[in-house]
């Protein structure tokens, strides 16, 4: 199904938390923030034109999301913040299992950077 068939799902509340898996190779030191954070490239659309995330309240657990994943780390963002950036979200459990969702909309450099700076590490999947 093409992404044009998707629209922001209003049944997903702004207060919901989403998780994004982060590869170890894309964790960077940020001297401005005085901490490590994901590179903005972690929030680039995949070749399929979407950004894969999990809705925390609908996933089985963070352990299930990370099981057999190639990534080592996990970060969280709120759906409200995603919408403030002009992005949308839609459920997609058919491809990624329970809680899987896609972030919709063009993620230009500034948007990716804001997501990377705002993302919070999810324990125990933090550097």
């Amino acid at each position: 199904m093409s992404l044009s068939a998707f629209a922001d799902d209003p049944t997903i509340d702004d207060k919901e938390i989403i998780w994004r898996r982060i590869p170890q190779l894309q964790v960077v030191p940020d001297d401005n923030l005085k901490r490590e954070r994901p590179s903005s490239n972690c929030f680039h659309d995949s070749t399929g034109g979407h950004l894969s995330v999990y809705i925390a309240s609908e996933a089985i657990s963070s352990q299930a999301v990370m099981q057999d994943a190639k990534e080592r780390f996990l970060v969280s963002l709120s759906v409200g913040f995603i919408r403030q950036l002009g992005l949308g979200i839609t459920r997609d459990s058919s491809t990624g299992g329970p809680g899987h969702a896609l972030l919709l909309g063009k993620k230009r450099g500034g948007i990716r950077e804001q997501m990377a700076k705002t993302a919070t590490w999810v324990e125990p999947y933090a550097p």
């Binding site: 190779l25 894309q26 960077v28 030191p29 940020d30 001297d31 401005n32 923030l33 590179s39 903005s40 490239n41 680039h44 995949s46 070749t47």
Partner: peptide, 18 residues
């Protein structure tokens, strides 16, 4: 800082001095 990218490329980045 050197980072591999999902598009098969490379990203270099600096986050310092504001």
């Amino acid at each position: 800082i050197v980072v591999p990218t999902t598009r098969g490329g490379v990203q270099v980045e600096w986050h310092q001095n504001g």
